[in-house]
Nucleic acid binder design. Structure first.
Lengths: 192, 192
DNA sequence: CCTGTAATTGACCGATTGTTCCAGAAAGGC
DNA sequence: GCCTTTCTGGAACAATCGGTCAATTACAGG
């Protein structure tokens, strides 16, 4: 029934992610999007709604499909090497980003969270997810006797999440592998 | 000579800080500024140049005059209580900000640093200043025998700066005093 | 007082903003 | 074939964007 779409929804959404990620919400115009997405203006509105709704869809897709943080590194090995591998991979990725771009959720939170409850909700969910991943791994480590009991597992997970968020900002000031690794070293030294 | 200005430059700049801080660079229009600053459009352009130049001036004034971080707490007491007092004051401030607003330099860096070298420069300077403040205090602590030698003083300073940056983002997800204090506890526990 | 200089005011500029309208094109079901 | 449904492309919308212009106003120095 009816004429079929000439584009793949997800592929277009991926391009929207790239544009919003690069220029932010207010910094991106619908004209920018029409050009970058390669579809007509009306198709854009029919398929994704208005600008804000497209932005939220892009955020959702980024979080579920495009965020390539290699969390699997955590589970494949003992706690300490796993954490080091994870943080190293993240820091290397940050140092390689040409213009110091950070995690899209961080960009979104900084720009829109104070003014858009839906963006705030998504950033909260992102934070909780990271926290849960760390918590799960730390609980296993505690059961395996890999870490002592001087800190609450939940507190440690929040501490690690906070450090990752910090690196997103620090990397904007110093896109320098050694510099960032030095911070990671101190951060992880808390686990002995 | 000539007609005197009817406004105080610094007071107007303070109002500009507030607007840019709240709505960001792209989110603020010149019309917004004219209204909030209470001066005419032409006076605005004559006195502060164009929008970007006003933004940079606002950032400079924020950094030199309006950033009320109580660094003095660091110097008035031994290292550990000083750090705890500083971090506690910052976390309390964050928890009290009604819409989860963070440090203006963080907002500026997230939105503009990737696209504006002058904003990036100012964020780098901000980072270095924080780092230097921590370094100076830590060096004194080391000389006084307050801390051991398991970590480089510079590395520790960068670690603390990174943690503060992280709290700016974490506070956007969880504007919760106890939650943030828990992170501070773990962060500072590294000093024994 | 008058003159020179600078600040104010408000209208105004073309460009761009997000969004909608509409005529036409392309498919599926009959 | 036709009809219905959906998608497309471009023109068009009022509103707003950052920025400028010219006329007017107000002070300082003579």
């Amino acid at each position: 029934m009816g004429r079929p779409k000439e584009f793949e929804r997800d592929a277009v959404l991926d391009r929207a992610i790239e544009v919003f990620w690069d220029r932010g919400y207010d910094g991106t115009s619908m004209a920018d999007l029409v050009e970058a997405l390669g579809i007509g203006r009306q198709s854009l509105y029919d398929t994704f709604g208005d600008k804000r709704s497209l932005y939220l869809l892009a955020l959702d897709r980024y979080r579920s499909e495009r965020n390539t943080t290699p969390w699997h590194l955590l589970d494949e090995q003992p706690l300490r090497p796993g954490l080091r591998a994870l943080f190293t991979a993240i820091v290397d990725w940050m140092a390689d980003e040409p213009d110091g771009r950070s995690c899209m959720m961080v960009c979104a939170a900084a720009e829109r969270a104070p003014h858009d409850r839906e963006v705030e909700r998504r950033f909260c969910a992102n934070t909780e997810q990271m926290e849960r991943r760390f918590t799960a791994r730390l609980e296993r480590a505690r059961a395996d006797g890999e870490i002592g009991g001087q800190h609450d597992v939940t507190a440690l997970a929040r501490y690690l999440t906070n450090a990752l968020y910090g690196l997103n900002l620090t990397a904007k000031a110093r896109r320098d592998r050694a510099y960032l690794h030095q911070i990671v070293d101190v951060t992880l030294s808390i686990l002995g």
